[in-house]
Design a protein around this nucleic acid. Structure first.
Lengths: 141, 141
DNA sequence: ATAGATGCAAACTGTTTGCAGCACC
DNA sequence: GGTGCTGCAAACAGTTTGCATCTAT
């Protein structure tokens, strides 16, 4: 993902946008960032970017299909790069850590259900909540 | 659901609480109400109940297991009576109308997934988005 | 040169909280 | 008579917007 990606969707290539893209990329699978999180990271990096800009840029990215916006508990929006794999999320109720997974059975069933009920499927949002049993694989923590 | 239900969970039987219960009950399957919605209905009924009380009561109901709180898009909380059937929701992206459904395949798969990934399942949240094709059953509209 | 992007502050929305008064056992 | 409940207003968090300035093209 680079400046070219931005141009392609009609957005000027500016420093805030590049920085935010970079942050989202380096966050990786396990880090799901709120706008405030992104803002704080920018500050840590010494960038002079306003919080409003972060929101504006993330919203533009969302509309451009670069980013997915997730609504978790507590009415906070979480942003992640849209990798197109249409994954879902499972979050640990103790640590708040978010993990991704893809499940074709659920994917398929959702398509069937929307069809059965007479809807033209446009998307879905699935979050599973549970306590992570660390013993199973301490490496992931 | 009556005053007895309230006492059982340690809440005093008061007019605001009874009214709010009543509103949730009469709302039925298809009406998913935000705190603001409930508040407006109270006003229409001529009740002198504060919005803060609505939030407080709904939160208490949630903790008592009487009510489920759902986080839909737009970071708005939606409240519905907890019937215990653990259903999910499909919402029409044109009208915003919410419909419930229960699907055992998905239910089962969620249990398997959380187990596979090493989580102690505590709950989940699934919302499907789609455009409702009215022709199929205009009656439901 | 100009349309678009930014930073700042102010506005807004949904929700929570502090407090004084009221209601109930 | 004390514990719990209420209404009001103020506080709060997350997000959006208006505007003057700046910048990529």
């Amino acid at each position: 993902m680079s400046g070219a990606e931005l141009k392609k969707v009609g957005l000027k290539v500016t420093l805030p946008r590049l920085k935010i893209l970079e942050i989202l990329e380096s966050a990786g699978e396990d880090h799901h960032l709120s706008a405030e999180d992104v803002f704080k990271i920018l500050l840590e990096q010494g960038e002079e970017v306003g919080l409003a800009t972060v929101y504006r840029v993330l919203t533009q990215f969302e509309q451009a299909g670069i980013v997915r916006r997730l609504n978790f508990e507590n009415n906070v929006s979480i942003f992640e790069l849209d990798t197109g794999d249409n994954h879902d999320h499972i979050v640990c109720i103790k640590t708040g850590r978010v993990r991704e997974f893809v499940d074709s059975v659920i994917e398929e069933r959702i398509q069937e259900i929307s069809k059965e009920l007479g809807y033209d499927l446009s998307g879905h949002n699935l979050v599973i909540y549970g306590a992570y049993k660390e013993e199973l694989d301490p490496a992931i923590k």
